[in-house]
Design a protein around this nucleic acid. Sequence first.
DNA 1: ATTAATGCATAAGATTATTATGTATATTTG
DNA 2: CAAATATACATAATAATCTTATGCATTAAT
Lengths: 113, 113
Amino acid sequence: MIYSSELIKGTLKTIVLKLLADNKKMYGYEISQKVKELTLNKIQITEGALYPTLHALEDEGLVTVETEFIGKRVRKYYSLSSSGKSKTKEKVNELADFMNTMKFLLDIKTKTA
Amino acid sequence: MIYSSELIKGTLKTIVLKLLADNKKMYGYEISQKVKELTLNKIQITEGALYPTLHALEDEGLVTVETEFIGKRVRKYYSLSSSGKSKTKEKVNELADFMNTMKFLLDIKTKTA
DNA sequence: ATTAATGCATAAGATTATTATGTATATTTG
DNA sequence: CAAATATACATAATAATCTTATGCATTAAT
């Protein structure tokens, strides 16, 4: 099962930031594979979503970029800036709070069958 | 604190369906107030989001509508159809599953501080 | 009387994803 | 060794879904 795409909306940036917080330094393709792996294929980030998101994070100053060449192939490593680190905490906390609220909403009268 | 709007995206339909499942019959304004109340003002559904959503649910055959007049003011009561009931279970389960996955993603290396 | 609350609706704009396409190198497999 | 698959980036067109703004109208509160 892959989650319907609407659910991912709004959480992608937070996911990317959190992965960078945990792994210090990652490149785009690596991020997409890591998410796929960690979620047992339930969340698959498309390239069309991921790369624009990384560019946006860069524009906002939340990540820094280093380009590396593996042979002739390019890799762009992303790392959190200091503002990126605090932003990550904010976003993760907000999402955790949101999930608790949603859990509460969805649990009301669970016995309604 | 009000959640940043991206988070609500994708969950609104599920929230509305779940409220209808728990309350049998609700009208738009009532739904918006109930969500506000239950979430301690953290989720505030705007009218521009709610009414189109209700119309979409109706178009999809997931809810049925009864119009009532309270004095001269109109109210549109929405109820789940039978397909709406099964759809609600699906959506609620999917969202619950998604939240577990997200919780797992966000909890990795919680002690990173 | 004026403001706030109730109650619906929709259009313009923004955001953010999907889908499709493009380019190129490296590895695996038949 | 040729073809397919995986790696690795990028972006444009399209779709979905929300915010913001606007509109109309009734009822309650100050």
